[in-house]
Design a protein around this nucleic acid. Structure first.
Lengths: 231, 231
DNA sequence: CTAGCCGATAAACATAGGTTATTTGGGGCT
DNA sequence: AGCCCCAAATAACCTATGTTTATCGGCTAG
């Protein structure tokens, strides 16, 4: 009576995430596992070196991809959540000055130095994950270019909830949001003050509830209406 | 005395573009050529169908990738210039509602239905082109999220000039900018009026010159300073 | 227990950019 | 030649968001 559930419970978070992008059979999982190597921990705030190191999976904690301007302005390009890969795609490996930043303490697992995707099914899954990431970046461009502060926030919160739900890190409409409002500001292209204003407004209007770093989506319908995003 | 220059002059625009991303020898070019098929022309304003058709190269004219919101707001995600591929990457082929829009009359050349990149060198070149496109999208996110109207415009003009120079469509610091200010607005996340204001300002300050659709970058140093973008 | 720090909250004011409406300036067509 | 139409250019006004500064509350180091 314990076998199956127990097995499920210990499934690696990156396998759980990758399953979203296509079927993975036992030999796919072992093929992947065989190509992974050492684990590592990083402190919050740490700037991960990507150009030299092999790609990795995030086991726990939150990271982000960001680009900084000379005068200190910073744009967060994407959030990296547990189970997500870092550095598998061209994006993060290209010469571009894309920084990978630990937003919380991190645990990662590196791929073997000569990592290659491997079997047919496995590489299709990896392609799916890369496509999903690009899709999120498109959403992000639309947010930044054409949405109001409240729309941006609503859409980001929905995205984060959906992604955390995939790996079982939500409880109903609640999830742990372990980042400062300053980080939200750099992600959404807003000022810190306006992020706070917007959150207060969403709170007053009963869209969300925040207690410390616990975020609850109280009115999903309204949030979805606000974030539009469809064609 | 005519052979070599003539050969160079008739080199296909997509080959010229692809050479930027890695060495292409004669057999690479023929391998690519063998995988391409019919040509097609489209009128300005046409919305190209991507999900059903094979990928293609843009032979002449300008196109863009865009996403529209329900209420009509639109964000242009990327410009597609002559020689650029459309639909080779996951981006444009994913289920996402990314539209491909002809900004001018277009000539394209489709790939054969079962297109695959082909030889080692050739696929490395294709990967390079995809990475370049992603890099430009990152620049675009930074523009949209963290730069002022003038900075955005300066940076976009520099990008367009550089890309057009690659395919010989510049004359010194001048190039043909065949798009309405409304399109610039949708690309830069600004209103049409503010795009006009910004262009006037750049003109007054001697940064650019515009006569009809002819754009000239008068003060590259100042434009580069304004667009920052470095880490 | 207290000092000090950090992040959230708040208030007051400033401004970049949005909106609406009007005018100007070429082409192309009749 | 005269008329249209469309895009560019202006103008006047409005507002979402940025900036600056201050307060508050909780946590941690001693």
């Amino acid at each position: 009576m314990l076998g199956a559930p127990a097995q499920r419970a210990i499934e690696k978070v990156y396998v759980r995430r990758l399953r979203r992008f296509g079927p993975m059979q036992d030999d796919d999982v072992s093929a992947l596992e065989a190509r992974l190597g050492r684990m590592e921990a990083y402190a919050a705030g740490k700037d991960l070196e990507l150009t030299t190191s092999p790609p990795m999976f995030l086991l726990s904690g939150w990271a982000c991809l960001a680009h900084s301007l000379r005068d200190g302005r910073r744009q967060i390009l994407a959030f990296v959540l547990p189970g997500d890969g870092i550095g598998f795609d061209l994006l993060t490996r290209s010469q571009r000055s894309v920084e990978v930043l630990a937003l919380t303490p991190l645990k990662v697992r590196y791929a073997q130095p000569g990592f290659v995707a491997g079997a047919e099914r496995l590489s299709r899954v990896f392609a799916g994950a890369a496509a999903a990431q690009q899709g999120r970046m498109i959403d992000h461009m639309v947010r930044l270019g054409r949405q109001t502060a409240l729309e941006r926030m609503a859409h980001l919160l929905l995205e984060l909830h959906a992604r955390l739900a995939e790996i079982g890190e939500t409880r109903g409409e609640s999830f742990h949001l372990p980042i400062k409002q300053e980080i939200l500001a750099d992600a959404l292209g807003l000022s810190l003050v306006h992020v706070n204003r917007t959150l207060q407004q969403m709170r007053r209007e009963g869209l969300i509830d925040m207690r410390g770093s616990q975020m609850t989506l109280l009115d999903r319908a309204a949030l979805e209406a606000a974030s539009d995003q469809s064609s």
